[in-house]
Design a protein around this nucleic acid. Sequence first.
DNA 1: TATTGACGTGTCACTTTTTACATGTCAATC
DNA 2: GATTGACATGTAAAAAGTGACACGTCAATA
Lengths: 174, 174
Amino acid sequence: MSLRIALLGLLTAAGPASGYDLTKLFESSISNAWQARHSQIYPELNKMAAEGLITVEEKGPRGRKTYAITDEGAHELRVWLIEKGPSRSYRSEGVLRAFLLPTLEPHEAAALLRAEAASYGVRLAELEAIRAAKSSWKEPGFGHHALDLGIRQTRLMRDWAEETAAEIEGTTRS
Amino acid sequence: MSLRIALLGLLTAAGPASGYDLTKLFESSISNAWQARHSQIYPELNKMAAEGLITVEEKGPRGRKTYAITDEGAHELRVWLIEKGPSRSYRSEGVLRAFLLPTLEPHEAAALLRAEAASYGVRLAELEAIRAAKSSWKEPGFGHHALDLGIRQTRLMRDWAEETAAEIEGTTRS
DNA sequence: TATTGACGTGTCACTTTTTACATGTCAATC
DNA sequence: GATTGACATGTAAAAAGTGACACGTCAATA
């Protein structure tokens, strides 16, 4: 369901696009919240087209198919956004890892937290570079808000890791 | 893989436990980062036992099986934590939803962001109540750090939603 | 002209996760 | 004594997601 909703959202925000375009868009925008490979996207687009949520226009020359959202598709997206209650589905291997670090010796955990923090720091710099170089979207603000959220989350992870490492080190050498 | 690692982590932190216990532990601790139903946990425990990562002790009276981590299991967890590079796998239906809000009319998006913010506020209060009532873990600090991270993330979402709503409203009534 | 790399779509096998069904025990309350 | 609810474990079908394979185009560069 989420994949389908994400695709409808991208088609709304970016206008008609091919599966290839959508795969790239996924990667460059929504990947902060959801991932999908082309091997999942292409079949889903075909299903959605069959169900009338999007239209297909085959125009090549490279066999390219351009998809556009239909009123029905827009309605589905709208209903999902408005009527669906707060979602619980959340998965983060990074948080899981951070969560499990205390199963190591304190000094090891602290070291890994420092490494994690550094890694999040790098990621943070990348995201901020993207924001600085911000290219335009068809729908203004769409990518902007999401990127802002991604930056905040990454900063949070970095700071949490840093502070938790400091806390563990403090407790250890009491 | 992540499920198995999470289970090994729980067995390390909480000591020997049944599938039932682990299901509850999952819910009450790691669910901030990963979710698993009993229908996934039970078969996985059986597989892990067959592979020697955990031991089983059938002792009833209700057919209860108690699992305990083996040295091999502890090693697997350790290797995963230390040797695995920074993970990318991250999915959040909540973030996805927030991301897609701009596909709505600004006033609708702002209204939904306010609702989201309120929802995160409630969740935040729940988490803080849990922290306040903090019961003890076998492994001290294990649950504590994770809970802290969860609280920070929830607060971040709430604040982001609130601020983004304000921003959209500000832009709209220019 | 040959190669390379972005463009472009697809399938298939496998793993992971969800949802629903299925079964039974034990302790406490009605 | 019957019901209820926490305890306790499982299976099976379906959906979602991953990784690898497979095919073919077009433009630019070596």
